[in-house]
């Protein structure tokens, strides 16, 4: 794989005594979508949260190994975690807009980052909402509460909010699992468009979604990375039997 954005070397994670991730090593290419699949409890979301140090917030977590983002180990003591999260945005399963206006939801991050100029903020809001394919639906009601939007619109708003602080990497944890097929399709289309500018890592339980949206797929099982490869290869001819059994629904 050329142009590696993230390189993971022997990364293990312990919740207390329990080893939840076991010596994960992988390379995540830039400007591609990488899907993480696997049964519940396999460690895929835990792994995703390692990429922007979200697990720092959980007590009793120990992480060993390296998570190199553009060559820098983000678990190095000198690294500022705020900067990491600025660079690595995250979208969650359940949309979580702030109880503020649509405009304020998007402008909030840039404001915290010190942007005060109204024209500049207006531009960021519009560009972010356009990138998230929701501008046309909300441009006439930017002052309305974000909580009045539909579930699908709220999720795209959250993506726009993530984009507003100009990240390089976007982590998505089951971003469409609570949405109807039309909203899901919009999110998937968006993921496809965003990869030109961003590196996207998406956790999904929906196998077809992984197949439709991603360039590479990594299969996790019981804290181990079983297989990673081009999505086309994983879904047509996986190398490992465990992967084959999982994607064909014959697991266990």
């Amino acid at each position: 794989m050329r142009d590696i954005k993230i390189e993971v070397k022997d990364l293990s994670l312990y919740y207390g005594e329990k080893k939840a991730l076991k010596e994960i090593s992988m390379q995540i290419p830039a400007n591609k979508v990488t899907a993480l699949i696997g049964p519940s409890g396999c460690g895929k979301s835990t792994f995703l949260r390692c990429i922007n140090r979200m697990n720092d917030l959980i007590p009793d977590v120990t992480i060993t190994g390296q998570m190199l983002v553009e060559g820098v180990d983000i678990y190095n003591k000198d690294v500022d975690v705020v900067n990491i999260r600025k660079k690595i945005g995250m979208v969650f399963q359940k949309s979580n807009p702030f109880p503020k206006s649509i405009y304020e939801n998007i402008a909030y991050g840039p404001k915290i980052n010190g942007i005060k100029n109204k024209t500049e903020l207006d531009e960021i809001v519009e560009v972010s909402l356009r990138q998230a394919a929701i501008w046309d639906e909300v441009k006439d009601r930017l002052g309305d509460s974000a909580l009045g939007l539909s579930g699908g619109q709220q999720q795209r708003l959250c993506i726009a909010r993530t984009l507003a602080v100009s990240p390089d990497i976007i982590l998505m944890d089951e971003p469409a699992s609570a949405l109807d097929p039309i909203s899901t399709s919009k999110i998937e289309e968006l993921v496809h468009e965003l990869k030109e500018q961003y590196t996207i890592i998406i956790v999904t339980h929906n196998m077809q979604q992984a197949a439709r949206t991603s360039d590479h797929t990594a299969f996790f099982y019981m804290g181990e990375l079983i297989e990673m490869g081009k999505t086309n290869a994983i879904f047509t001819k996986p190398e490992k039997k465990q992967t084959e059994d999982y994607i064909t629904g014959r697991f266990g």
């Binding site: 196998m207 077809q208 197949a211 879904f235 047509t236 001819k237 996986p238 084959e244 994607i247 064909t248």
Partner: peptide, 9 residues
């Protein structure tokens, strides 16, 4: 069923 891998083949 959206078959994949050996089922698809």
């Amino acid at each position: 069923q959206q078959p994949v891998a050996s089922d698809l083949r």
